[in-house]
Structure formats: C-alpha cells, structure tokens
C-alpha cells in the first residue's frame, strides 16, 4: 500500500516536466529538489543528535572544487564531482575524527563545526585570485551551451530529471540507514555514549561513517547547485548562514522523518518566492524575518517539525501501529 503510493508519486514526478513545462515553476522545483537533497544530507547525521554547523563548508567545497577543476584544469565535472566528494569526505574526517575521539559532543561539536564553515568561507574569500572571492565564480560555458561532457544543460527538463534522481537517491540513502544496524547504534550513542560503548558499539567508527556520508552528500548538493545555477558565491553555497539555513529548514520540516527536510525546503523556498513576487524589492529581509520567528516557535512548540507532528497525530489516531521511539535531541 505504502509502496504503491510512493511508486505512483514517483511516476507523477518523473512525468511532470513532459506534461507541464513552464520554465519558472520548473526552476523553482529544481531549486527545491537540490536544496531538499542538501537538507536530507544534513539530517542524515542531525537526526542522531550530531548537530553540525559545518555543512555550509562541505557544500562550498563541493561547488568550488567542481568549478575550479573545470575552469583551471579543464577537468570534466564527471571527474571533478567525485574529486569534490572525496575532498568533502577528507575534510569531514579531519575535523570529525578528533572530535569523536576526544568526545566533543553537543554544542561543543556544533561550535567546532561552526569554525569549519568559517574557515571554508574565509579561504574562498581570501583566494580571490582563483575563486573570484566574494564577487562569486562562474564555471566556463561549454561551447554550444548543452553538453553531457561538461554537465551543462540549457533545458530545464534535463535538470529537473537530474535533480529528481539525486533527490530520490538521497531519500534511498536515508531509508537504507534507517533500516540498518547503524541506525540503532547511533540512536544508542545519542542517548548515552558510555552505555552504547559498553554494549559493544564502536562509537567513533559509527559516528564517523554517518558524518562522512552526510558530508559527501552535501558536497554533491553543492556541485549540483553550481552546475545548475552556473554561478556560485561564498555567501550562497558556504559559510555560517548556509549552515544555519540547513538546520532551520530541517527543524521546520521534521528532523526524524525522511520527507521532513523536503517539506522544510518546500516551505522555506515557497515562502521566499511568494514574498519576493508579491512585494518585490520591498520584501528584502522579510522572508528571513518570518523564518527566524518560525524557527523559534518551532523549537519551542513543535520540536518534531511540521511533518513529524502531522505523522505523530495520525499515528496517535491509529493505535494499531506501534509508536516509534523518538530519541536524541532535535
């Protein structure tokens, strides 16, 4: 039953651009899908109480390594993106391994990772001779516009399908983790590290695995964003505000459910777009104003997020289904 609903919804999403191809709504959908994937990547570790404020850094690495490899080395994104993912993974290990080894947890972990996103932002700005600094950076257009080799497409439909498949792959990864022993290990760790270790869980290794996975997925989101928008700047793909934006969207959507980050992305991006269209330049700042108030309200009143709370209500209405334990810190 659940599977058939998912298959139907998936088929509908794949068929959409062939039936309906207005460029602007498709653009919004693509942006939503890319950010949903980024937010899902963050929630892979965030749902286990590993709150990272460094994911802006991983996203920036993904975007800039891919673009720099293409512009300076002539390396196709087909090779550049894997290199960017490895770079993101290595950076994650460099920072996260000592953190986990020395048991830096909770808001100390958040602050160390905050320093990481600060470093990436400042390095991008400081190496302005190569990266364009805060003015931003554009991957060179391949002659002719669209090219599979350069991973550059002018058609929105192609991009929609790419973003859709990456987003679906992200959800698949989420479910794979959800059904693995890793999930139980990490839930145990988020409740009590010593207890988990005593029960035979390799705390550092389990945390490191999920962190590297999450970081590499975020780097992929950054690379994808770069290839689609063809323009990146330190403020749009890296830094502390992007890190906070990820946390915020996930908390609003629902941190413990697979579609929570997606719901968060839909809400935040639609809110920004609606305000922008209805108020134009007068709306500058209003979207973040509403975000900020919502974030505070959600953490105080609805820590499970919109989707999480809705599903919780439905589950309470149908007592046959066993309630799933909600563990860890939101």
């Amino acid at each position: 039953m659940k599977r058939s609903v998912a298959v139907c919804a998936g088929a509908g999403l794949v068929a959409l651009p062939f039936v309906y191809h207005q460029p602007y709504p498709l653009h919004i959908l693509i942006v939503i899908l890319i950010w949903s994937f980024a937010y899902t990547s963050w929630s892979m570790m965030g749902r286990f109480g590993l709150v990272s404020l460094g994911h802006g850094g991983f996203m920036g690495i993904g975007a800039y390594v891919t673009a720099l490899a293409w512009n300076h080395g002539g390396v196709s994104p087909w090779f550049g993106i894997p290199v960017a993912l490895v770079a993101g993974g290595v950076l994650a290990v460099l920072v996260a391994y000592p953190c986990f080894r020395f048991r830096i947890t909770g808001h100390y972990f958040a602050l160390v990772t905050l320093a990481l996103s600060g470093i990436v932002l400042q390095v991008i700005t400081a190496t302005r001779d190569h990266t364009g600094g805060s003015l931003g950076y554009t991957p060179t257009r391949y002659q002719g516009g669209s090219s599979l080799y350069a991973l550059q497409f002018t058609g929105k439909t192609t991009w929609y399908l790419i973003a859709l498949s990456v987003w679906a792959a992200g959800l698949y990864a989420w479910h794979r983790v959800d059904r693995s022993m890793t999930r139980y290990a990490l839930e145990a760790i988020s409740e009590d590290e010593d207890g988990a270790a005593a029960a035979g869980v390799h705390v550092t290794a389990e945390k490191l695995k999920i962190t590297v996975l999450s970081a590499m997925m975020t780097a992929l989101a950054g690379a994808l964003y770069c290839q689609y928008q063809m323009f990146i700047s330190p403020d749009t793909v890296s830094g502390i505000s992007i890190s906070l934006q990820m946390v915020f969207a996930v908390v609003v959507g629902g941190i413990y459910v697979s579609l929570g980050p997606t719901v968060g992305a839909v809400i935040t991006i639609l809110l920004a777009e609606v305000l922008r269209i209805s108020f134009g330049t007068r709306a500058v700042g209003w979207d973040n104003l509403v975000y900020g108030v919502l974030l505070v309200l959600f953490i105080v009143f609805l820590p499970k997020g919109i989707l999480g709370s809705l599903l919780g209500l439905r589950r309470r209405a149908a007592p046959a289904a066993p309630p799933r334990a909600q563990t860890g810190a939101a």
Partner: peptide
C-alpha cells in the same frame, strides 16, 4: 530542553534580528 535546541532557537533569533 536539550542544549542544542537552545542554540538553534537563538539561531532563529539571529535570522530575525538580521532581517
């Protein structure tokens, strides 16, 4: 609440004050 929730809530205040 968990310390991290307090940190995130003040993150919301950050967005609010900036905008």
């Amino acid at each position: 609440a968990a310390p991290i929730n307090q940190l995130l809530a003040t993150g919301g205040v950050l967005f609010f004050l900036q905008s």
